Simulated scan of single mutants.
Amino acid sequence: MNPLMQHLGLRVPIVQAPMAGGPTTPQLVAAVSQAGGLGSLGAAYLTPAQLREAGAAVRALTARPFAVNLFVPEPLPTMTEAEVAAAVADLAPLHTELDLPPPTLPERVREDFAGQFEAVLEVRPAVFSFTFGRLGRAEVAALHTAGTLVIGTATGVEEARALATDGVDAVVVQGGAAGGHRGGWTHDELADTLALTRVVVEAITIPVIAAGGLMTAADVHAALDAGASLAQCGTAFLRAAEAGTSAPYRAALAAAQPGQTVLTRAFSGRTARGLANRVTIEVRRPLPYPYQNALTRELRTAAARAGRTEFLSLWAGEGAHRGREGTAAEILGDLWPE
């Protein structure tokens, strides 16, 4: 047992990745934490009120430590009318197939980070993790005052060094095989998870958490052998009974084949890994994040209702074909047989 495990009171050296947008329900988070790992609530798309409610729901299910994760906001990018028109034109035929009105940008394209952060301080989770950038020193200090550990996300050595300088308590290093959004904010190296873990462990003195393509007990052991204090697994939990993964999404994961994932900006405007489908192929002129994410929200919602996986963002890592169904505790037990 390493110091990070001891500090958090974990029995299992595994973090359930914070997958925003529905999969990480309070039930999943609580089940993983209750079974000895660290459950993580992907709260980036929640309003402050929803975040407080979800935190309370986790607390009602377990007294064990858990994490809350947010996206660090970058300055909103500028766009031309021509760029907006091109993005709308790419999506319009897909809207027509689902009997939706033409795509339009909503007034609000992302949640209020300041309000979300205040909600996190009220929830007081054991861990606050973040991605897409660096957290200000004042925010790090406020979390430490609340007794919350702070974990940043890096896709390369220089990002990891920057986070360590900022005073975070640990760094998630995200290898290229990881599903969902790329968490970095400078040059994304898309590195091999184990190789990146080894390099970052040598470069910084705080604990490192390995993420990306870790689907089996052998993968977890390999990450720990590479020097990681914990292994973070996301795709492995997408088909858990407690996860909020929709039925069509689950079916697509169950049918996944090796080599089926791609890196795409089509859904959100930010690079993310998921199963290839018509949107990843046909949408070629996305707006930058968060505008594209807001522009495709109606399409994704309607596609989930209609069971149309060709229009869903099917985030998944390269190991998706090795996933399984079961309870969160059963999946955690597979990843770390006691």
Rank of each mutant, 00 (worst) to 15 (best):
M1C: 01
Q16P: 00
V150S: 06
A142D: 15
N69G: 10
M215W: 02
A203T: 02
R297A: 12
F237Q: 11
A138I: 10
V171T: 05
W336T: 00
R52F: 04
A126N: 06
L76I: 13
G333C: 09
E53Y: 10
L135I: 14
E318W: 05
R273Q: 01
G212F: 04
V157K: 09
A146W: 11
P73S: 03
V283K: 02
H221V: 15
V12S: 01
A60V: 12
G184C: 11
H321L: 08
L46E: 04
R305I: 04
S246Q: 06
V120R: 00
A222W: 03
A164P: 01
Q16K: 02
G244K: 08
A160M: 12
L224R: 10
A195T: 15
A146S: 15
A177N: 03
A236V: 08
G269E: 07
S268P: 05
V173E: 09
G180W: 07
T145K: 15
P258G: 13
V140Y: 05
G21C: 00
A60S: 15
E111G: 10
A177F: 07
E282Q: 13
T131E: 13
M215H: 07
A223E: 01
V200M: 08
M79N: 13
A195G: 14
R308C: 10
M215V: 14
R64N: 06
P290I: 14
A191D: 15
A57I: 05
D90C: 02
L135V: 06
L76R: 10
T235K: 04
G36L: 03
P75R: 09
A328I: 04
V173C: 12
A303F: 11
P248H: 11
P26M: 08
V150R: 07
M19W: 04
T235N: 09
V120S: 05
R182L: 01
P102I: 06
A294D: 00
L295F: 08
Q50Y: 10
